[in-house]
Every structure is written in C-alpha cells, then in structure tokens.
Design a protein around this nucleic acid. Structure first.
Length: 202
DNA sequence: ATCCCGAGGG
DNA sequence: CCCTCTGGAT
C-alpha cells in the first residue's frame, strides 16, 4: 500500500466530466473501452448535451452515432437514454448518492456506482473493481476470486476505508503503465519484490 | 454462460 | 489473426 501511494500519489479518474451526471455517462461508456476513446466521444456529446435532460431527450439514433466508436454502442446508447430519463423523472436530473439507488439504473452495476459515489461525491461505499483492479489483485495475491463482487469483498476486508477510492485509481494506473494484461513489464516493475508471480505466465 | 461491439497493439 | 480495453443485462 505504501509503495502504491508513493508511485502514484496523484492518481485520479482519467475520465473527463463537468458534473456527476456526465461522470455517470462517461463511466457507462467506459465498459470494454479505453478512457482515451471515451473522452474523445464525450467531448462532443457533453458539448451538445450537457445535462440529463438533454441526454434523455436525444433521439436514440443520434445518441448511437455519438457513442458508436466506444463499442457496444446500441446497448450503451439505450442504457444512457433510459438512465438519464429515470434521473430526470425521479431524481431531479442528479445521480442519487447510494448504491441501492444507483445500481437499479439502466447500465449501472456496482463498478459504475462505486465510481460515481467515490469520484463525484467522495463517498467510499465500496472498492471499484474493473478489469485492471481484478487482474492486479489476482496477480499480486490479494485475492484468488474471479467474480468482481468477491474480489471487492476481499479488498474491502484488506483495505482501510480511507484508502478505498485512491487504491483503485492507483491500481488502474499501474495496470495500464506496467502490469498490463498482455505483456506485463515485470523487469521494471517496482512491485517486483512483493509479487508472488514474477515471470509466471498470467 | 452468452451476448453486445468498435478500435488499437502485437 | 488474436487479445484487450475502468461492464452490464439476459
């Protein structure tokens, strides 16, 4: 934990947004897609449609065209429209502040809900477990679980709540820059001494 | 377990 | 060609 904090003291969410709703939409778009591409898409989308009302009112075909290059674009467009419609109708256009209220929204699971709560509202309701956090947690032996919900439970037991939010951002940075999925750079990794699987495949 | 789905790297 | 990218719904 100390090394992680020392290596990435300024790690933060790489998605660009100007409001909690925009962060929620950007996070939905980030599924199986690089944050860089999400930012490319949201730059245009949020310039034209900054609020939940704007996004909910956008015809589905137009929304699909905006988000097309992020992949899964039909699902993502449909979910964003439905999600923003619910926000307008039930939450005055603002994402709610609890997991219980966020997860039922279209296209929102625990990962997305934890990002919005932690990053937009500073609420540590859980640990964000995405593909990077899951992979690194398994490689370093913090968990043996595959299911993201079980990985999250293990991490919540290991980490003090005060570190839940920063931990994920730091793991994601390290996962992108060093411990990537295909060819991890174990020879230059600063976690070499702690890692039980240096030189081991997957 | 399977489907959704485009873009970029090796 | 194959794999991966801040997943979620059925």
């Amino acid at each position: 934990m100390r090394r992680l904090r020392a290596d990435y003291p300024d790690a933060e969410c790489a998605l660009r947004y100007n409001s909690p709703v925009q962060l929620l939409v950007a996070t939905i778009l980030s599924a199986q897609c690089t944050d860089e591409r999400v930012n490319l898409v949201t730059a245009r989308l949020f310039a034209d449609c900054p609020t939940a009302e704007d996004l909910a009112g956008l015809p589905l075909e137009r929304l699909e065209r905006y988000v097309q290059s992020t992949g899964f674009f039909r699902n993502k467009a449909k979910n964003i429209k439905a999600c923003c419609t619910t926000l307008v109708e039930e939450y005055d256009g603002q994402p709610p502040r609890t997991l219980e209220e966020l997860v039922p929204l279209a296209g929102v699971g625990r990962k997305t809900a934890n990002v919005v709560l932690g990053v937009a509202y500073g609420i540590a309701a859980g640990v964000v477990v995405d593909t990077h956090v899951g992979r690194l947690s398994r490689r370093t032996g913090l968990t043996t679980q595959e299911d993201p919900v079980r990985v999250e439970r293990d991490l919540m037991e290991l980490l003090p709540r005060s570190r839940w939010i920063d931990f994920s951002h730091q793991m994601i940075y390290h996962g992108r820059q060093v411990c990537d999925a295909r060819r991890p750079k174990c020879d230059t990794c600063s976690f070499r001494r702690f890692c039980p699987r240096v030189g081991v495949a997957d």
